[in-house]
Nucleic acid binder design. Structure first.
Lengths: 348, 348
DNA sequence: GCAGTTAATTGGATCGTTCCAAATTTGTCA
DNA sequence: TGACAAATTTGGAACGATCCAATTAACTGC
């Protein structure tokens, strides 16, 4: 049974028709008679036929219905949720995804993209590794494969982009902290020299300036975008001559780290120190204290990115668009503000 | 440039050789003369040739070098890390992965597996959705595609399996809690009626029995395997007439939820109540308090699963093996025990 | 009963690569 | 120089599905 796979010719023979008819049945063509269709389908079932998509893709017109997805850190739940969102719309549109993790390695990313190209992907959604250049995507775009860059930018690349509104989100968050009475507000975590970091810190600076407050550079403490980075950053912040009383963190992972670091120093987040995150990962809501954060809705963003890509694929020609996904501040407990639903925590 | 892709024939023409020679160069065959090889490679570069793996896979002997991976919940970092571990060994073995998320939906899982089959995967690693039956994998195994089931079992399926030693891990954890003086120890979180739940609760029961303690069923509180489930479970536990003083949790996600729930009730985990998790996800180490947990090393498990699959693929014939991956208790702070490195927390 | 439609069906030819057997070139030695 | 072996190179036939033009079957209306 397992020797020599079953092909259209085999089922054609079994059903007493030609391979062409079988092909029509496979494509659910209205041209074929109901009786024959039933006969062919029965043969397909009986022989355990498996459609060979590779063979079908050989004809130039056909598209592979494979979408490549490359993210820079799958262990960060933001990206995991992003991928899940994409999966939802791609799957229901009849595409399958080729998901890979570059783990911030440019080499790895190159390999993965090359491999996807060989497999004839119909499109690529990429959350680029740090340092990705336009040249890395050139071969892909040159051969007309639509690409959507999410989260991070690839300077000079002619691809569609979908970013969250980092500047506005950060500004809103800091405004909120100011409205709660804070005057010395830090920016903690994240990797300096990245676009996202620059945008978020600019939002922080602008909100402070707007309120006539200063934004001393020693209060913008970069480290890493992960939990451990938050711990380190808040430690540095608390050891300053005049420590801050509140912080906007680079992302939720860092914010959780900041909470950990505060507790390690005997301070309770949301009580003795206000903490605001960025991303609104799924744990933000159930954490204690629940994390006030700028919601970028990772799953929604994933869905949107997938939709942008599908639109380009269906349009047939590549016409890059740049979308900025709006964000909104979700006030929970970690900033010490009273909650909308009446529950409250005491503010510092 | 983008019209009509470049094929072996094109580069053959450009390099002044036959397509067969080009094919040999592509496969790095030692048969071809160095000078011609260089000429062909130059043409490949110049024309921007992209190898068409689909066409190559058409010949019966070739293998697709695609591995399918299906996990039941990518947003759980345990599975994300599992996938990352697999990615590492598969990538370096020259395979690409087709990763999908079934999100616990059997329908979805069926669709995805069917799609992977059409793409001619060389093997499948599956963390099955709840309720997966042997019949779901039958077509795959019948056609000789190696399958490795991880984390959860598929009863009756003739596939390789890789599980963590749930029974021993739970037993060790509970023994440790007993050695710290706890007498009323709960089991919190997880979904009843799953193999993993049954194995872990059995370990809990056995450790208690061994110490001559009772394991009343009201202390085994199932809910869900996520953070919110932990919150709910500990709430129920604390409202019992005689509440427990310690708990082994179904997994780390639930354990974090239990910590959250404890704080919401004004109790400090690791101080007023001992908490032990299961999995040792990456956040377990940096959380506050650092989570005492049974380490199953998800990345290592992923690597191992990938190795098992590759072994089967290379062996040529499917010979299922069952591997139980050993686990070890990592004592940190959440159980209230003094740490090995001298730092200590006060035990309740 | 027959031309004119419409509905179903069907042989090739084709996609881009690999593999095989056979052909060509080059090298070696008597 | 000719015979023989080794080193390279090469057409053509697969692989499995699709598409096109062409054929056959079934149905009109007169």
């Amino acid at each position: 049974m397992s020797k020599g796979r079953v092909t259209v010719v085999d089922i054609a023979r079994a059903a007493g028709v030609s391979k062409s008819t079988v092909s029509l049945v496979l494509q659910a063509s209205p041209l074929v008679n109901e009786a024959t269709r039933a006969r062919v389908n029965a043969a397909i079932r009986d022989l355990g036929y498996v459609y060979n998509r590779g063979a079908a893709n050989l004809r130039q017109s056909a598209s592979s219905r494979i979408i490549g997805i490359v993210v820079n850190d799958l262990t960060n739940s933001f990206f995991a949720e992003l991928a899940v969102g994409m999966d939802m719309v791609l799957q229901s549109a009849g595409y399958v995804q080729f998901l890979s993790n570059s783990a911030e390695s440019l080499d790895r990313q190159r390999q993965v993209i090359a491999s996807m190209r060989e497999h004839g992907i119909s499109g690529l959604i990429l959350s680029p590794a740090r340092g990705t250049e336009a040249a890395d995507l050139k071969p892909l775009t040159a051969s007309g494969v639509p690409v959507v860059a999410v989260v991070r930018n690839v300077v000079g690349a002619k691809v569609s982009t979908l970013f969250s509104d980092n500047h506005a989100g950060a500004k809103d968050a800091v405004r909120h902290l100011i409205s709660l009475g804070h005057r010395r507000i830090a920016f903690l975590g994240g990797i300096a020299n990245t676009t996202v970091f620059a945008e978020r810190t600019q939002g922080w600076r602008d909100a402070l300036a707007e309120a006539g407050l200063e934004a001393p550079e020693e209060l913008a403490i970069a480290s890493t975008a992960a939990r451990a980075g938050g711990v380190a950053a808040v430690e540095r912040a608390l050891s300053l001559p005049v420590p801050p009383t509140a912080a906007l963190c680079f992302n939720d992972a860092a914010a959780f780290g900041v909470c950990d670091g505060l507790r390690a120093k005997g301070k309770e987040p949301g009580h003795d120190f206000a903490v605001v995150g960025f991303d609104d990962v799924i744990e933000a809501e159930t954490a204690v204290p629940a994390l006030t954060t700028v919601s970028v809705d990772p799953q929604g963003m994933g869905r949107r990115a997938a939709q942008m890509l599908l639109k380009q694929i269906n349009a047939g020609r590549v016409e890059p668009e740049a979308v900025v996904s709006s964000v909104r501040l979700v006030v929970r407990e970690s900033c010490g503000a009273p909650r909308a639903d009446g529950q409250r925590r005491i503010s510092a």
